[in-house]
Simulated assay, not measured.
Amino acid sequence: MSYQLIELDIQATDNIQCLHCQQHVINWAEEQYIQPCEHVLFIAMDIGFEYMTDEFEQTMPRSVDDLHAHDDQVNMFAEIVKSTYPDYLIFKSDLGIEGYFRYVGFTA
């Protein structure tokens, strides 16, 4: 396994901070709440991707466009963990909808 899953015990409206540089990569105080730093590989939800680096997308078996085209049939978490990216961390947090989650991938 090239990833480590870290489940965050936070509310859906809480900010998520980079463990490397402490930047709030999910920052609800900003109009554009997605604020990726250089350590973020992707920001995804069970319903689709909000952000992904080209570097990480190249390690996935399917493109983001293909995944979004079939998002009603795709398990986003299962697709993320199929990546061949060498080592990364996935922060999993509640999305605020029962049974749905947000996933933020960071370099290890």
Rank of each mutant, 00 (worst) to 15 (best):
Met1Thr: 08
Gln4Trp: 02
Gln4Leu: 11
Gln4Val: 07
Leu5Phe: 04
Leu5Ser: 01
Leu5Asn: 06
Ile6Arg: 14
Ile6Trp: 07
Ile6Tyr: 13
Leu8Phe: 05
Asp9Asn: 15
Asp9Phe: 10
Ile10Arg: 12
Gln11Leu: 09
Gln11Gly: 04
Thr13Met: 07
Asn15Phe: 03
Asn15Lys: 13
Ile16Val: 15
Gln17Ser: 15
Gln17Arg: 14
Cys18Met: 06
Leu19Asn: 12
Leu19Tyr: 14
His20Ile: 09
Cys21Phe: 09
His24Ile: 00
His24Gln: 11
Val25Pro: 00
Val25Ala: 03
Ile26Trp: 01
Asn27Asp: 15
Asn27Gly: 09
Asn27Pro: 03
Trp28Gly: 03
Trp28Lys: 06
Trp28Asn: 03
Ala29His: 06
Ala29Asn: 12
Ala29Ile: 01
Ala29Ser: 12
Glu30His: 06
Glu31Asp: 13
Tyr33Asn: 04
Gln35Leu: 00
Gln35Pro: 08
Pro36Met: 04
Cys37Ala: 13
Cys37Pro: 09
Glu38Leu: 11
Glu38Ile: 07
His39Arg: 08
His39Ala: 07
His39Glu: 05
Val40Cys: 01
Val40Glu: 00
Val40Asp: 01
Leu41Glu: 01
Phe42Arg: 08
Phe42Ala: 10
Ile43Leu: 11
Ile43His: 05
Ala44Lys: 00
Ala44Trp: 00
Ala44Gln: 00
Gly48Asn: 13
Phe49His: 08
Phe49Ser: 03
Glu50His: 06
Glu50Leu: 12
Tyr51Arg: 02
Thr53Lys: 08
Thr53Cys: 10
Asp54Lys: 11
Glu55Asp: 13
Glu55Asn: 08
Glu55Phe: 09
Phe56Pro: 05
Glu57Gly: 07
Gln58His: 15
Arg62Cys: 06
Ser63Glu: 13
Asp66Gln: 13
Asp66Tyr: 13
His68Lys: 12
Ala69Pro: 04
His70Tyr: 07
Asp72Leu: 14
Asp72Lys: 13
Asp72Ala: 11
Asn75Ser: 15
Met76Phe: 15
Met76Cys: 10
Phe77Ile: 10
Ala78Thr: 05
Glu79Trp: 03
Ile80Lys: 07
Thr84Ala: 14
Thr84Gly: 12
Thr84Tyr: 12
Tyr85Asn: 08
Tyr85Ser: 02
Pro86Val: 07
Pro86Tyr: 10
Asp87Arg: 15
Tyr88Phe: 15
Ile90Val: 15
Lys92Ile: 04
Lys92Glu: 10
Lys92Ala: 12
Ser93Thr: 09
Ser93Asp: 06
Asp94Leu: 12
Ile97Glu: 13
Glu98Ala: 10
Gly99Ile: 12
Arg102Met: 10
Tyr103Asn: 00
Val104Met: 05
Val104Cys: 05
Gly105Ala: 06
Gly105Pro: 06
Thr107Gly: 01
